[in-house]
């Protein structure tokens, strides 16, 4: 969606709907209107938050993510607007980097 494919290859930023199952990712941008952002905020998705992709429904169905202890189903439309960066490499999922969330603003 308007991305330079070459640039996307280098940039660590990717849309949430392309993240693989069981991967942890950190929200860096919410590309949506005020209302969508506010709604995501109240459900516990903020910029800087870590989330885990728990499941992806087939045929462009929704993505199930775990964030701040709750599970959210996000339609692909919304998920594609949440840009994230993937945690380093294939690390163990048992080390929740809780400190990372503390960053403000």
């Amino acid at each position: 969606m308007g991305y330079d494919p070459i640039l996307e290859g280098v940039s660590p930023m990717m849309a949430l709907d392309t993240v693989d199952v069981k991967r942890r990712a950190r929200v860096i941008l919410i590309d949506g209107g005020h209302r969508v952002r506010a709604h995501l905020n109240t459900l516990g998705i903020h910029i800087g938050d870590w989330l885990t992709v728990v499941e992806r429904a087939p045929f462009r169905g929704p993505v199930l993510v775990e964030v701040n202890g709750s599970r959210l189903a996000l339609g692909r439309g919304i998920a594609s607007k949440i840009k994230v960066e993937i945690e380093g490499s294939i690390e163990s999922l048992s080390t929740p980097p809780r400190e990372a969330e503390a960053e403000q603003r």
């Binding site: 209302r35 969508v36 709604h39 995501l40 459900l43 929704p62 199930l64 709750s70 599970r71 959210l72 189903a73 996000l74 339609g75 692909r76 439309g77 919304i78």
Partner: peptide, 9 residues
């Protein structure tokens, strides 16, 4: 339509 944003309890 904003699409699905739903908490799964």
């Amino acid at each position: 339509s904003p699409g699905l944003i739903l908490e799964i309890p």
